[in-house]
Design a protein around this nucleic acid. Sequence first.
DNA 1: GTGTCCGTTGGACGGTCGCCCAAGGCGCTC
DNA 2: GAGCGCCTTGGGCGACCGTCCAACGGACAC
Lengths: 196, 196
Amino acid sequence: MVERARTGPTAADRGREVRERLLQAAVELIPRHGWGAVSTRMVAEQAGVTPGLVHYHFASLQALLSDAALGTIRELIGGIPALLDDARSPRQALNILFATLDSYQGRDPVSLLMAETYMAATRNEPLREALAAVIADFRSELAGTLERLGVRDAAGCAAVLSAALDGVVLHRALGLALPAATVTRVLGRTLEGDKG
Amino acid sequence: MVERARTGPTAADRGREVRERLLQAAVELIPRHGWGAVSTRMVAEQAGVTPGLVHYHFASLQALLSDAALGTIRELIGGIPALLDDARSPRQALNILFATLDSYQGRDPVSLLMAETYMAATRNEPLREALAAVIADFRSELAGTLERLGVRDAAGCAAVLSAALDGVVLHRALGLALPAATVTRVLGRTLEGDKG
DNA sequence: GTGTCCGTTGGACGGTCGCCCAAGGCGCTC
DNA sequence: GAGCGCCTTGGGCGACCGTCCAACGGACAC
């Protein structure tokens, strides 16, 4: 054990690190070039490893891209519901939601990664299922929060709101002005008539 | 002139027809394989012409794809505002809007073509400008209709609504249930408080 | 030392890519 | 007929693709 500490990371450790670097490289390249234009050699170069390593650590290029995209999206979306715990009113929840969204103005890597993954999912059944599960989770978490805050038709509102969220990102990606103030003002009305 | 009628289409006529067939082929292939996966040879085969013809009629493959996508989208979106002329109330306008949208459940060629074009536009500046112009047009037409119907904050509502429209299509593409009834019920509240 | 395991290397495989171009067909005008 | 212009053909260019694999490296167990 003492020897282990002196000998540094094992081969398996370094292998795991290479795997991580490949995932990170994919996450950076998908938004920059588009899902369909990312190649094995491109990812390998970005990660600073040999092209052959891609197919040692992953079954295929598509598997690498899917793993990378899903990992990032899960991490991203999974963190949002916790932020809503502090909300004391529907309006406040909406503010938190779209304040979070304001980090993503549509042309940033994260927004583009999400959109690219959506598109790729329409032509890749396992990916579609995995992504749909992530969104469905978010939807039901949001519905729970809205219900707690006394919103009528919480499930419907959550479904439409999460769709609207993605639509806003998409339109911003086109450079169409869509300030958070406008969005919250208009969508806030969907939550009116709350019992609380 | 009388002779012309007997000799049938000129070379130029046939050329124009080939051009049309290439555009149509691109429109069919972009949703099926994704913007980045459509190749010159693929389009040529779908159109029933020789691969070399692609670069005779178009400057590049990207130019062909852009022309094809923009043509279809312009035609599609351009027709919607006219449908809203019959609307007598905001709620009615919303119904017409999402009834139209119900032809596009997210996984149909038209929806996917739109989404693919959105993504391609983020990496293709001329395409981005052209597409943004189409959406901006639609937005202002919609704002005009909403204003006519006495909706407060017509411009804001139009912007958010057109973004929400795209988001709904995107979520449906993932197979997430989002019935028109839910959407109109929730988004209808954004139009409440109208003066009329 | 010998063998084994795991990560790694670098190149090879057959195939497809976007784009280009010499050559030819065909209808038109002289 | 000859000449012209547009459309079309078919193949070739170099580059890149996803995937595979024989050989290699070093750390460990015996």
